[in-house]
């Protein structure tokens, strides 16, 4: 066997990563606690994208709405960002 083969990842780490990918509170890069209002200043596109993902995941999991039926509109004005989500029920 090749002596320098890559160390296999522990299954606990894999489980933790998978858990954090599907759980509502930790979907995307940012952890958003329930009921918490978040204020963004000088936010990067990456942060905004993670919020959009969170909103879509939330609608999908809690309101049983298909992700494609969740439209998220983002408008930037200077340092402030406004996010409006439209959820389309059929």
């Amino acid at each position: 066997m090749w002596p320098f083969s890559r160390k296999k990842k522990k299954t606990g780490e894999i489980a933790k990563e998978r858990m954090n990918s599907f759980v509502r509170g930790t979907s995307g890069a940012a952890v958003i606690e329930r009921g918490q209002t978040i204020k963004l200043e000088n936010s990067s596109d990456e942060e905004i994208n993670s919020i959009v993902t969170y909103i879509k995941d939330y609608a999908y999991r809690n309101l049983s709405v298909d992700k494609k039926n969740v439209k998220v509109h983002i408008s930037k004005e200077g340092n402030s960002v406004t996010i409006v989500a439209s959820i389309i029920y059929k």
Binding site: K10, G12, A15, M19, V23, G25
Partner: peptide, 19 residues
Amino acid sequence: KMVKKNEMVSPEDIQNALA
């Protein structure tokens, strides 16, 4: 023992995920 060996998610991990 499995948590110690990093083969199972810990209660803290679950608590953090579910908040």
